[in-house]
Amino acid sequence: MNGGKSYLVGLNMIDRSVFGLVQVVMAGVLMAGCSVTVNPVTTPTEAPVMNAEAVRDRSIELQEVVHSHIPESVIDSSSESLPKIGDLQNTLLTCQPMFPGAQAEVNDESVYYDGGFAVFIKPDTDVEQLKEELASALSNEQGWTAQEGHEGDPSSRRRWFAQDNFTVSVGVNESADTGEITLNVSAVSPCFMPEPPYERGDKL
């Protein structure tokens, strides 16, 4: 993991037990340490001091916005076994640059918060249509700006910047082994210095 942030490109076979489902979600929307970092740090600036609980609540709010645009008709009933938005604790992770060569924050104690959720999508869903309709809805959210893809980015996820510099990311993954379709969402904060009593590595 090394503290950076990147996103799930595929899912292994999902254990239908509650324990197995929690592990899948944790791996998909929390650990995600293998491809592309997304916390929006591109220039060396002093990270602002922020209340970590308020940052967490804002991440949850943005996740709920995305969930509100997912048609209930496409959500598989097995999603009821997955953790709900805000159920899981997330670690305050060390900030890293968004792209190779970009400068990280000058204060190496700065952190970011990454919250997320996942739902299973019904197998008969037109996935491409779902992705396009969801992308259109989120692009029309007030203050949200779609992020263009970047050279060398292997991820098929789509991302938006909210007006307060949170990054919202959405990806749909289809398992070649099981045929299951999972929609993964994350809402990542900008870099910040957490107010006491929180510090890097804490969970909330």
Results as ranks from 00 to 15, higher is better:
Gln142Val: 06
Ser78Lys: 11
Val49Tyr: 07
Gln63Cys: 14
Arg56Trp: 03
Thr43Gly: 12
Leu21Arg: 12
Ala176His: 00
Ala47Arg: 00
Ser175Lys: 03
Gly115Ile: 08
Gln147Asn: 09
Val36Glu: 02
Pro48Glu: 06
Pro190Ala: 06
Ile181Ser: 05
Cys95Gln: 09
Gly149Leu: 11
Asn2Trp: 15
Met26Lys: 12
Tyr198Ile: 08
Val38Tyr: 11
Glu133Met: 02
Val38Lys: 04
Tyr198Trp: 14
Ser78Ile: 12
Phe120Trp: 05
Ala104Asp: 14
Glu61Asp: 10
Val185Glu: 01
Phe166Ala: 01
Glu61Phe: 09
Val22Arg: 15
Thr94Asn: 06
Val188Arg: 02
Ser156Leu: 11
Asp126Asn: 08
Thr178Tyr: 01
Arg16Leu: 15
Gly171Val: 09
Met31Tyr: 15
Ala187Pro: 01
Asp177Glu: 15
Val49Phe: 00
Pro83Trp: 08
Val66Trp: 06
Phe99Trp: 13
Ser186Gly: 02
Lys203Thr: 11
Val170Lys: 03
Asp124Trp: 04
Ser169Val: 07
Ala146Val: 08
Lys122Ile: 01
Pro40Asn: 10
Asn165His: 10
Val170Ala: 03
Ala102Tyr: 14
Gly179Trp: 01
Ser136Leu: 08
Leu30Val: 15
Gly152Thr: 01
Ser73Leu: 02
Phe161Trp: 04
Leu62Asn: 14
Ile181Met: 00
Ala102Ile: 01
Gly115Val: 00
His150Asn: 13
Glu148Ala: 12
Asn12Met: 10
Arg56Asn: 09
Glu195Phe: 07
Val188Ser: 09
Pro100Asp: 13
Gly152Ser: 03
Leu62Gln: 11
Gly28Gln: 07
Gly179Ala: 04
Pro154Ile: 10
Asn140Gly: 07
Asp164Phe: 05
Ala176Ser: 10
Ile75Lys: 00
Thr178Asp: 07
Lys5Ile: 12
Gly10Ala: 15
Asp164Glu: 05
Ala187Phe: 03
Lys203Val: 08
Ile70Phe: 03
Asn165Ile: 06
Asp202Phe: 04
Val41Gln: 00
Leu11Gln: 01
Gly116Ile: 05
Gln129Ser: 13
Pro71Thr: 10
Gly149Pro: 10
Val172Thr: 13
Val9Gly: 12
Glu151Phe: 14
Leu130Ser: 03
Gly4Trp: 07
Ala104Cys: 13
Tyr7Glu: 15
Phe19Val: 15
Thr45Gly: 01
Gly3Ile: 14
Gly10Trp: 15
Ala118Met: 11
Arg200Pro: 00
Arg157Leu: 12
Pro197Cys: 11
Phe161Asp: 12
Pro40Cys: 00
Asn90Cys: 08
Lys5Asp: 12
Glu105Ala: 14
Ser68Ala: 11
Pro197Asn: 12
Met193Arg: 04
Arg158Ser: 09
Glu64Trp: 09
Ser73Gln: 02
Ile75Val: 15
Ser59Lys: 04
